[in-house]
């Protein structure tokens, strides 16, 4: 396989990875948005009077969502960094 063909193959692989990442980021954003909305709803619920058991349950759900959102933000940052690194390496090749 000639170098040109090899580079072409590599480029198409990177383009494929880029497309997958874009889809992943779009989906991740949607999920994070849904989680944020749910957290806001629960926080509003927490402000309203209710039994201590119910308040504890709501707080527990907020804690779960917070942790999931934190993890989501980390994944988002990681994908962004990976895309940036890929773009840089593409620039160096060309």
């Amino acid at each position: 396989m000639t170098n040109t063909k090899l580079f072409e193959k590599l480029r198409s692989l990177m383009a494929e990875a880029d497309r997958t990442d874009k889809k992943h980021i779009k989906k991740l954003r949607k999920v994070l948005h849904d989680l944020k909305d749910r957290q806001r709803e629960l926080q509003e619920k927490l402000q309203q009077p209710g039994s201590s058991d119910e308040q504890a349950r709501v707080q527990q759900e907020i804690d779960v969502i917070k942790l999931q959102r934190e993890k989501g933000a980390e994944v988002y940052q990681r994908i962004k960094a990976e895309r940036k690194a890929r773009k840089n390496s593409k620039g160096e090749q060309s």
Binding site: H24, V31, K71, G72
Partner: peptide
């Protein structure tokens, strides 16, 4: 290819 739920 959905892996988001496993990551979060």
């Amino acid at each position: 290819d959905d892996s988001i739920q496993d990551e979060l």
